[in-house]
Design a protein around this nucleic acid. Structure first.
Lengths: 257, 257
DNA sequence: ACCAGCTAATTGGTCAGACCGCAATACTAA
DNA sequence: TTAGTATTGCGGTCTGACCAATTAGCTGGT
């Protein structure tokens, strides 16, 4: 999924290195540089994009971290083999429902596997994390941090670094998505609290070392979070729809003037 | 999961910005800068770490892409809310079995969801990708690229950007893991070919729009890949065990001299 | 006493140029 | 033909500069 960047467009908050990285990602994805081949040298890319060499370096770091390229000092920047993570706008703004649906899938299975492998020490940590969540009237960031901690402890109990990485990737998507952040803020304003009963159910299933119960409890929990989000966004969706209608009316001069 | 960096250690191929980023990630994870707070200014960090400001900027870009911080021009670098993806060594070297186990979990469910949502156009693309894989004696990178393309098309058929992101994250782990690359190379040297029959089974299940069959076929396929890896690594494991024994014997002077 | 506006300081963004070390390639000599 | 050496091209890191955005503080007016 590529994003074509308007020539000369300076998006709000946009950074030059990001735009250069996106353009490079685009030409790589289009096959201009096949896997194994080498990008032009930093100095040449700086000429070609008419930016400075530090800006090129920053863009290449972004591509490297996204898995597009591999940097070898003294040799060059080589295109990686594969279609891996593309640095596009949508990665930075995945919808909260997509994220939750993916979490149901991933964290449900992770809970099941964790129920099979969790140690007593890890159980104690999960309990502690749940106790931290129960502590109300703490600052919101602390409460949310405890929620993430709870879920990440379960991920780590699977003893699978790839699952841990996937779960933290999903949390990163959630934490960095402006759309998600805004909707989650609306949920907080609606006065909701962490769903302690559901987390207790997950805890019980883990304590029982019951994979099926753990999967079911985690899925139930995340499904209810989706329901909560739907409820919280309903009013906003109505409001946005009204705004859209008003805008269209103004646009076509249909409002009494 | 933190990795403490040996003071003054210069790992082969290590880059200064990476070490700075890891140290910053460590102090952030340890709570020295709570969520919402601001990091010291770039110039101050440059003094503190005794590096240049461009190096600090490169490190901060890495942290930003990993979801640790948010950069606001003219204002500062703020700690994000959450435990998200940590920039540690282990993220870059996840074992191939962990990756495959995670893929069974994720891509199994993704295949199931894709079977429910895939369009005729997307089906045609998946077929084409499978045809590309059948083309033998092409260069290995082309064949592997077609395999990844096949799996990513299925991910996109789920119509869920978070799932797409997770799948490409897993491919990125696989593509960037030296351990995985080495073992996969060993599998290739053993003469294995892409498991076309298994991919055909996945294709048939998608064409039938059968979620259960799609999940089962994908899981079967990836389970057999695991078996193949186990077979391929058995000889290597034996060899490594022998080397370890020899090393220990030399170490304790048990070899005849 | 409070608010608004202006100015200065601090922050990140981008740039130019320099130097160093490593890797790769080419050339020469044995 | 091979090995060694030198050269070139590459990325790595640095210094210093300037610009734009944001924030904080101060002053004046109401």
């Amino acid at each position: 999924m590529n994003v074509s960047l308007d020539a000369g467009k300076l998006s709000s908050g946009g950074r030059l290195y990001q735009r250069v990285a996106e353009q490079l990602a685009k030409v790589i994805a289009e096959g201009e540089y096949p896997p194994g081949s080498r990008l032009p040298a930093e100095r040449k890319l700086a000429e070609r994009f008419e930016v400075s060499r530090p800006t090129i370096r920053e863009a290449i770091i972004a591509l490297e971290l996204a898995g597009f390229v591999e940097v070898r000092g003294g040799s060059g920047v080589y295109i990686c083999n594969g279609e891996s993570e593309k640095l596009t706008q949508t990665t930075l703004d995945v919808g909260p429902f997509d994220i939750l649906e993916a979490r149901i899938m991933v964290e449900g299975e992770a809970a099941s596997l964790a129920a099979q492998k969790i140690t007593d020490e890890e159980m104690a940590e999960v309990r502690q994390a749940l106790d931290d969540m129960v502590t109300e009237n703490e600052g919101e960031p602390i409460c949310e941090k405890a929620d993430e901690h709870f879920h990440m402890l379960i991920a780590r109990a699977t003893k699978n670094d790839a699952i841990v990485s996937v779960c933290s990737h999903l949390w990163a998507l959630r934490n960095s998505s402006p759309v998600s952040a805004r909707i989650l803020e609306k949920v907080r304003q609606a006065g909701s609290k962490p769903r302690i009963d559901e987390h207790h159910a997950i805890l019980k299933a883990l304590e029982a070392r019951d994979p099926k119960a753990a999967r079911a409890a985690m899925r139930e929990h995340l499904t209810r979070v989706i329901q909560q989000l739907l409820d919280a966004t309903e009013a906003e969706a109505v409001e946005e729809a009204r705004r859209a209608i008003m805008h269209d009316r103004k646009r076509f001069n249909l409002i009494n003037t």
